[in-house]
């Protein structure tokens, strides 16, 4: 599914304009780095896509859905197309690794046997097989990040959104995670990664979208630069 933002502005309060006049299209199957200094609006942009927030001005559509007009009864079904790694993970501390991943697809009404198979598969993929019965508090930071990734992958989403999935990780682990995201992308999933990590952006070259103070500063695609929104 493709993501289209046209003239998006998000104003939280008169003094806080988190995004201003953003035009951005992410094609189906693309891999995009979303970079920018802290407070530049990366998380805000991702939260617009998950429809946690609605834009103050402008149009946003994902696939053929206009997110401004989506009904609240449709929202769960829309969100099942997305896999999201939140900046703060949002893991449930009462549940084990297995349960944290499982409840996403359980909520879709998938039968227990299929849940079992699928959850084991993604947990194995992120390398947490031996940790699957531990709770988030018993895991290291990198392990928690990988649980969040496994959870976002579990429903085989068409769009994968990751907010700082390598924050606070050492280089080796960060690279592992980026390779994991690239493999998800290789399977046909659209991937948007918000990151601060300039090294990774340079090492694993993909399209780069840079935000600065809520404005689109740079959109680098296959060597071409777009500055301040002009082509």
């Amino acid at each position: 599914m493709e993501i289209r933002l046209a003239g998006i502005t998000k104003v939280f309060s008169p003094e806080i304009v988190a995004l201003e006049d953003i035009f951005l299209t992410v094609e189906k199957g693309e891999f995009v780095y979303l970079i920018g200094t802290t407070g530049s609006g990366k998380t805000t942009l991702l939260r617009l896509i998950t429809r946690e927030i609605v834009p103050t001005r402008g149009q946003i559509s994902v696939g053929n859905r206009n997110l401004r007009k989506i009904r609240s009864s449709e929202l769960p079904y829309y969100r099942r197309n997305l896999g999201v790694v939140f900046q703060d993970f949002k893991l449930l501390n009462d549940l084990t690794v297995f349960e944290n991943v499982a409840f996403v697809i359980e909520a879709m009404g998938v039968p227990p046997r299929i849940v079992q198979t699928r959850v084991n598969e993604v947990i194995d993929l992120v390398g947490l097989w031996r940790r699957r019965f531990l709770k988030p508090m018993q895991l290291s930071g990198g392990e928690r990040q990988r649980v969040a990734i496994a959870r976002a992958m579990a429903n085989s989403p068409s769009i994968f959104l990751a907010d700082e999935p390598t924050g606070n990780l050492d280089l080796h682990t960060s690279e592992e995670i980026i390779r994991l995201l690239l493999s998800i992308n290789a399977a046909g999933t659209t991937v948007v990664v918000a990151t601060h990590d300039q090294y990774l952006v340079d090492a694993y070259r993909q399209r780069v979208v840079e935000l600065h103070d809520g404005r689109l500063k740079r959109d680098e695609k296959r060597g071409r630069y777009v500055i301040d929104g002009e082509l």
Binding site: P76, R80, L92, V104, A107
Partner: peptide, 17 residues
């Protein structure tokens, strides 16, 4: 409340929650 928010975010219906 945290759990409910997360469930809503990952596409659980209101009824299910």
């Amino acid at each position: 409340s945290e759990e409910i928010r997360v469930m809503l975010l990952v596409g659980a219906t209101r009824t299910y929650i």
